[in-house]
Design a binder for these strands. Structure first.
Length: 308
RNA sequence: CGCGGGGUAGAGCAGCCAGGUAGCUCGUCGGGCUCAUAACCCGGAGGUCGCAAGUUCGAAUCUUGCCCCCGCAA
């Protein structure tokens, strides 16, 4: 069975390697074109491309798949696996594969269809999410479901750790799914679901409840980050946990700023303890290290963004 | 030429503008106090001040060039 693997970000790398390790013949990898990255605008290949090159698999990266899929056709694969590829597939492309196109999606469909299911589930405070293998159709993640598996979301998770776990889960599931697909699987239709939007860099609104703040921070870490302003500077937050707070002070007030107690900020209800952060121009550091520089004192107040 | 911050002890920072003894918080090591401690007190070790050249009697500090790290924006 010849397979094309379509994917772009890190999330797709482990599934790709799993498919290879399981002994399948991946005849080509489809990924988005190299993009300029960082301050210097260096042209950077996608993580999936790097993985493909490592395994000496031909890489296809059309700017517009919609009009430029001749190379994909020539690959002559029986089946395509998609995993966060990043371009919409047309019916013409879907029809290229006798055994169909199958998607690895990082949510328990039909919840969290779309762009940023992992971050969104975390931000929304979900206690569980998962991975779904389903048939890729023209609709946005609406195809019939073949397999799915859940995993708990812990308070110790951020988007990075959760993505990593889901990526491994997706790898296991796709390896489990391929034999089923060859045999002609039975599928389950999706129920009523919803689409989630891409995540953006977001200013923390400390007037919200502590859990909402903590989930936002963790959901946007390690990118694109929840941030806040204080004392004429911007802090990116890498990690936060909920904390107790008896004090009756306005939301956004720094309740504790000692290396021992950590950086505790009052929220609308409760408080959060920022444990990992990054000042503008600086490296990521523990709150302890940050506070050792004595930049913050108790009683100072974070800006609260205007109502959204 | 997109905008900007930074490189000083193991960590996080101050000192630089107005050149002249290497400072703070923490960690670490040793000692003390204590029933005890992550608490408190005393003491110690630990630094090519990113690199190079220049100015100067004297440079972390001023000048020039270079290297590296990072935030925003794309």
């Amino acid at each position: 069975m010849k397979i094309v693997f379509a994917g772009t970000p890190n999330f797709a790398c482990i599934p790709l390697e799993a498919v290879l390790e399981a002994g399948y013949e991946v005849v080509a990898v489809l990924t988005r074109p190299d993009r300029p990255q960082g301050r210097k605008g260096i042209l950077t290949p996608s993580p999936v491309k790097e993985t493909a090159l490592l395994h000496e698999i031909p890489v296809l990266q059309p700017e517009k798949l919609k009009t430029d899929f001749s190379a994909l056709k020539e690959a002559g694969a029986d089946l395509m696996i998609t995993c966060a590829y990043g371009q919409i597939l047309t019916q013409e492309v879907l029809d290229l594969f006798p055994l169909g196109v199958w998607n690895i999606h990082a949510s328990l469909l039909p919840a969290y269809r779309g762009a940023a299911p992992i971050a969104r589930a975390l931000i929304d405070g979900c206690r569980e999410t998962g991975v779904t293998i389903m048939k890729t159709e023209r609709g946005l993640d609406t195809g019939d479901i073949l397999l799915s598996k859940g995993t708990p979301i812990y308070d110790s998770d951020d988007c990075g750790t959760l993505e990593d776990r889901l990526s491994r889960l997706g790898a296991d599931l796709i390896v489990e799914a391929l034999p089923l697909i060859e045999r002609g699987p039975s599928l389950q239709k999706q129920g009523e679901g919803f689409v989630c939007k891409k995540v953006e860099r977001t200013e923390v609104d400390f007037s919200r409840p502590s859990r909402a703040v903590s989930c936002l921070i963790r959901g946007l870490s390690p990118a694109p980050f929840a941030y806040a302003r204080i004392a004429d500077t911007v802090l990116n937050f890498w990690f936060a946990e909920e904390a107790d707070c008896e004090e009756d002070v306005p939301a956004g007030t720094v309740v504790s700023a000692s290396p021992k107690e950590g950086l505790v900020v009052k929220c609308g209800t409760g408080a959060v303890r920022i444990t990992e952060l990054q000042p503008a121009g600086g490296r990521r550091m523990s709150a302890r290290d940050f506070l050792n520089g004595r930049k913050l004192k108790e009683g100072m107040k974070f800006d609260i963004p205007r109502s959204i």
